[in-house]
Design a protein around this nucleic acid. Sequence first.
DNA 1: TGGAGCATGTAAGGGGTTACATGATTTA
DNA 2: TAAATCATGTAACCCCTTACATGCTCCA
Lengths: 190, 190
Amino acid sequence: MSLKHALLGVLDARPMSGYELKQFFDSSTGWMWSAQHSQIYPLLGRLEKAGLIVGHDQVRGEHLRRIVYEITDEGVAELRRWVGTEHPLQEERDPFLLQALFFDLVTDEVAVSILEVYAQHQERIAEESEEHSSMLASGQTPLIRERLHRRSSRERARITALKARAFAGKAQVARSRANWARESVDLLRG
Amino acid sequence: MSLKHALLGVLDARPMSGYELKQFFDSSTGWMWSAQHSQIYPLLGRLEKAGLIVGHDQVRGEHLRRIVYEITDEGVAELRRWVGTEHPLQEERDPFLLQALFFDLVTDEVAVSILEVYAQHQERIAEESEEHSSMLASGQTPLIRERLHRRSSRERARITALKARAFAGKAQVARSRANWARESVDLLRG
DNA sequence: TGGAGCATGTAAGGGGTTACATGATTTA
DNA sequence: TAAATCATGTAACCCCTTACATGCTCCA
């Protein structure tokens, strides 16, 4: 139920429509979670039925309608409960490492070329996450500003520090994957 | 289609039954992939229908039967094709980092306790993967011995090096997650 | 006026987990 | 003889992706 709590977590900053949520997920390399709109819209409906969010209809122009969802007190309570709970830590399942496990079946050249694309991809994620982390630390992303709006300065410091930490984690993992891939390339070229 | 190629990759070392494959996946913290038997048995049937593997019935005692699957030449070709292909690199979706992103909703104590369990879990994965990596490097796991059976010593060196590298990657990622969690604990404790 | 973007939905199908179900063989 | 292990299957359900489907509004 990660998407559920990803939605609640964003709506805890400010009310949004399904369309806005989708755009937010797509920004900065998938934020920390992502989903297709076909998954978001039905889930928003279910969350409303469950009383965790409430939707308000808005009209733009004559007929273009959208539903802006706001988190309820129960929604915040559910999010807090989920965050404060230890969840079973599932097995790592990394399709790329599975592929790498069988690199002996292809030539060094092929393996190197696949590893280099992977390394670049992970480096991009690492850079974007580092960037996002420092933006959060200095309270410069649009959403963090809204989130901090009615908080005391003590709370603000804690919130920004913890959000920045999470993205630093994403960055570190990506950096470590990239380094491993670069080392592997060096080894194969050795 | 990762499980499909995980199965082919193991069967490329030696023939196995569904039951043995399941046990193999469960050994050493989920190997590089894992699956429930309810997913394995039907898939083996489909792979046989597709001609990538062939099953041979065996009987133990009077009535206990099992089906031992062997990879075919087409199976090896399919595995090689898959390994030599660049696959779309999907978004990172780490449920734990999502949870960590909202740690500001709980007390430092709760966050620390959750982070410590996570750190221990990742450290265990790192240790087991490092161990497995060096076992592979020295050709000491049961499966790698079977895999190397009919290979030249040149091939053997390359195969063990690459398999060990893949598990080294798993270890590095887990280590990096554990380090991040420990750093986070230090930060929260001030 | 046409195309990009706004906005929301449903349907089909694959991958994965949990639960249901059955029966044989070995070992304490 | 009872429990652990061997051994294989099906069914229901959830999450996610891809595709199908519709209509409005703003701007060049």
